[in-house]
Simulated scan of single mutants.
Amino acid sequence: MSELKVINLEGQLVTDSREVAEMIGKEHKELMRSIRQYSGVLTSAKLRSLDFFIPSYYNDAKKEQRPCFLLTRKGCDMVANKMIGDKGILFTAAYVTRFEEMENQIKQPISSTKALLQAALEQEERIGFVEGRVESLENNMRIDGGQEYRISKNGKSKVVECLGGIDTKAYKEISKRAFSQFWNEFKRYFEIPRYGELPKVRFDEALQFINEWSPNTAMRMEVKALNAQQHLPLGSEQQ
């Protein structure tokens, strides 16, 4: 079992979920799924999930940003409590030891000029790290459930509007294609696999996109023709 790395993030001791996954012999994506579940339960109980798990990001081998979590000691406690057998025991021993070592280092007084300078440099690096992390989170944080619902609702309303309403012939015959066209264009415009992956910073832009969207020319003509048939006088279609 590898040694767990613990860092001091603005006075909060944390460890990376990738480190934890490697230590407990679990795929990182599986641990991430579990942590999201724990966070959801905590939030539902009106507890601060950030006291346990802090959303973060890292750059993979392709220099692309990927999500991860920073676990506090409480977060490690929660993960350890879900484990059984030797791995759970060893993980508990490892994180308790590393967190205590870091806590003791923080408590030790800095007595020399060299140590003071080193501490100042480390603090500056941490500030830069945190500022970069905050900026990254702001730029890459995904929309929340409420915003996702609003995009879904507004998108559906826009498509229905462009088809003339849910009682029209166009809606009954081509709504499936219209919705497909809308969501495909939405995902292509924002370069995302699904609308729930939209970055928070582009939420207002997404609402504007929905407000200004309309089907392509061929579909607009098809909608017009179908709805015109619906309003023909009785018997005119047979003439």
Rank of each mutant, 00 (worst) to 15 (best):
V159N: 04
A93P: 02
L198H: 05
R202L: 13
K46S: 12
A218E: 15
E124R: 12
K74F: 02
I35D: 06
S152K: 15
W213R: 11
T113F: 12
E237K: 09
E122T: 10
F186K: 05
C162K: 15
F69L: 07
N184W: 07
E135F: 03
M23F: 13
A119I: 00
D167I: 02
L121R: 14
I84C: 03
I84A: 07
G128R: 11
A94L: 13
A80M: 07
G128W: 04
G128I: 09
P67W: 01
L207A: 03
G85D: 10
F182Q: 10
Q118G: 08
S56N: 15
E27D: 11
V14N: 00
K82I: 07
N227A: 04
C76G: 01
E30P: 00
T15A: 01
G235M: 07
Q147P: 04
C68T: 13
G165A: 13
R98W: 00
S34T: 14
K153A: 10
T97G: 07
L117N: 10
A228E: 14
A80V: 06
Q108K: 14
P67C: 04
N8W: 02
G235S: 06
E138N: 05
V14Q: 05
E10M: 15
Q239H: 11
Q123Y: 14
E100W: 04
S236P: 02
Q105I: 07
P55A: 02
